[in-house]
């Protein structure tokens, strides 16, 4: 369980691989979060953000059409979405990428493969802070 988070929080999972989206959805389910919406890339996610309100975003770094970093920047540049906690997930973690993501306002960064426990740890770290990074 993740303290300080309503289990009904709307979570947007962004990944171009269906299997990965399913794994993330399943991991969130293990933590009690069932209100999950999926997006296939950054463009799709931005469209969904315009139509709905989300309390948390989990996004892959490497995606076609719009990379995770560009998606993060787009989220942070919009008044309506800039405060949403944003967890970046990546298979290839490079120092420079982590720096870029941190500068762009990422809330946490998780390296694949990850476990439910590490997802829980990151979510706890994000939601235990008074304010999400912006």
């Amino acid at each position: 369980m993740v303290p300080n988070v309503d289990v009904n929080i709307k979570i947007l999972v962004v990944d171009d691989h269906q299997t990965m989206r399913q794994i993330v959805r399943r991991s969130l389910g293990e933590l009690g979060f069932m209100n999950v919406t999926e997006a296939v890339d950054g463009m799709d996610a931005l469209a969904k953000l315009q139509k709905d309100t989300f309390g948390f975003i989990i996004s892959d770094w490497n995606m076609p059409n719009m990379m995770g970093l560009d998606f993060l920047k787009a989220v942070r540049s919009s008044e309506s979405s800039k405060g949403i906690p944003f967890l970046m997930v990546t298979a290839e973690a490079k120092k420079e990428n982590v720096f870029e993501a941190a500068k762009a306002g990422v809330s946490q960064y998780i390296v694949k493969p990850f476990t439910v426990a590490s997802l829980e740890e990151k979510m706890t770290a994000i939601f235990s802070r008074k304010k999400p990074s912006a």
Binding site: A93, V98, A102, S118
Partner: peptide, 18 residues
Amino acid sequence: DADIDQSAADDILKRFGL
């Protein structure tokens, strides 16, 4: 270009107060 692990990524994030 080398990949870093989770703890190295965490160290970088800590520098940003995350």
